[in-house]
Design a protein around this nucleic acid. Sequence first.
DNA 1: CTGATATACTTAGCTGTGCTAACGAATATT
DNA 2: AATATTCGTTAGCACAGCTAAGTATATCAG
Lengths: 150, 150
Amino acid sequence: MTRAREPVNPEMAPAVAERLHRVAISMLRRLRTEDRRTGLSGPRASALSVVVFAGPMTLGELAAAEQVRAPTMTRLVQGLVDQGLVERERDLVDARMVRVRATAEGVRLLHEGRARRLARLEQALGRIPARELRTLGTASRLLESLVREL
Amino acid sequence: MTRAREPVNPEMAPAVAERLHRVAISMLRRLRTEDRRTGLSGPRASALSVVVFAGPMTLGELAAAEQVRAPTMTRLVQGLVDQGLVERERDLVDARMVRVRATAEGVRLLHEGRARRLARLEQALGRIPARELRTLGTASRLLESLVREL
DNA sequence: CTGATATACTTAGCTGTGCTAACGAATATT
DNA sequence: AATATTCGTTAGCACAGCTAAGTATATCAG
């Protein structure tokens, strides 16, 4: 009777979880290699990316977005400022806050670094059959919303 | 195997690459939270995992498997030894080498930590429609072979 | 067998990222 | 005006990554 359309999932979920976890780790490990050439570490590139794409924001917001504590973000931003990729300015309304905005150089380097980091992955994806690529496209969207509920 | 016909993928590959990359980062970031309770850091858990599943191996092999330099692995193993999760022994044939093997406690803790780390992911997967889960299962296998060619 | 070279790992010391605790400055509340 | 709260910084710890240089063992050439 229970020709289930609802969760028969508990059975296969562990295996999928395990494989996703493992693949995520090794994928990032491989791509990390390319990262170093830009002089942008992973965490800095990630933070810069948020600032570039979501626009100027406060240090606290940025810390929350990156799931990191405030002191950690203070230092990440310091590094980015030293590299000339980001600027800090006190908020005019509430002087406790610090707004972080990307410089032109920051935007440029981010795109360059991103391109380099993803090049190998893109090439590998470009070689697989279109059907499989479509599956991965769908899956990546599913994962996106899944991760939000972790 | 996947080379037979050249697909038109180049157009969508970048978007998929970008999303996969982003999702992998944020997924691991979330899961890492659970890691701390076991007292096993990510890199240590990962190294221990290799030793447990692939059996005893030399420090150099372990470093290669983890894509890390020898000095880094020396210290990771030191930490694991201090925690009583792993044992070191000089190779009898070639005394330059160090063999690393998991202790019973190491095996136990690894499985416990792994279970904890994946619990949230498994639960989230258990809640989505079976069809989507199947897509993710397929995708995870595709990614597995993809990563091998990165 | 000896001396040179190669290999496997360790030590030392640097950078960077994460944390908590404690603090300062600015704002909000009472 | 006094107190509490919020935002960010500083200080100080742990750990993970690296390179360069050192030690011990193995191997090889003569």
